[in-house]
Amino acid sequence: MKLGYQTNTWGGVVGHPNGVTSIKDLYYLANGSTEEALADIAAAGYEGFELFDGNLMAYENEPDRFKSLMRQHGLQFIGVYVGANFIYPDIWKDELYRIERTVRLAASLGAEHLVAGGGAIRHDGTTEDDYKRLAAGLDEVTRMAAKYGLTASYHPHLGTIVQAPEQLRKLTELTDVKLCPDTAHIEAGGGDPLETIRTYIDRIEYVHFKDYRNGRFVPLGQGSQKFSAMLDVLKAHQYDGWLTVELDSFPNPKEGAETSMQFLKGIL
């Protein structure tokens, strides 16, 4: 397996301010330095990196600078993370426009994966049609990503309509989209990450490892996740893709990356 790291630890997770009034500009952002993140990720021994759409689009007019950073640090560009509401027909075309713009740039820079999260929770409750709209949107994103040579996967996430195991089951009955399990979000949503990987192994082409303890995301090995058992399941099914560590925020991002790498070396 190849080991990667998400850049969102450097600065934590925010959103682009233009998104408040313009859906087509509603990007995720890690509110730190991508350049510093790549240097630290490489120094910790990872082979590749994933980043948010907003951090990628900062290089839209400077693609050669992005390529230079990858060469400088000897890193591969694994993929990009995007989010959308998915359930509101009036804004869907603007959301899809933003995602395709991101995918086009990501593909030109050598990315392999598109990770999509979302499915908004309405103020007055989720409807069955919301799951149908989310599924249809993910099918469209999957086709669009494939057009550019990327594999699209859905990432269950707290704060969406796919947090709990039953919600994930409901969605997967409506779409064939690949699944990118985020182990800590699955646990925080009431699920068992190991059982989730076993259940959906045939859909998994990309994996996020994240540890969880007392309601907080922590470096690998500092929580209760059964990573060795998860690796056994993945290996038994000949999974040889990317294993990307994600840690939304940490006081010392480089130290967090190093801690997780040391843990992975001990179990791989």
Rank of each mutant, 00 (worst) to 15 (best):
G4A: 03
T7E: 08
T9S: 12
H16R: 09
V20K: 13
A30F: 03
A30P: 10
G45N: 04
Y46V: 06
F49N: 07
D53K: 00
G54Y: 02
A58N: 12
Y59A: 01
F66M: 02
S68L: 07
L69M: 07
Q72V: 01
G83W: 10
I87E: 00
Y88E: 14
I91Q: 07
D94C: 01
I99F: 14
R101K: 06
R101G: 11
A106D: 08
A106M: 08
G110R: 06
E112D: 10
G118K: 12
G119T: 06
A120L: 14
R122F: 11
D124M: 07
D124I: 09
T126A: 04
T127G: 00
A135H: 00
E140I: 10
A152H: 02
Y154C: 00
Q167H: 05
L168F: 03
R169Y: 02
K170S: 06
T172W: 04
T183F: 00
A184M: 08
I186A: 01
I186R: 02
G189S: 02
G190H: 09
D192E: 06
L194N: 03
E195F: 09
D202A: 07
I204Y: 01
H208R: 00
Y212T: 12
Y212P: 11
R213C: 14
P219G: 10
P219D: 13
L234C: 07
Y239M: 01
L243D: 06
T244A: 15
E258V: 12
L268F: 08
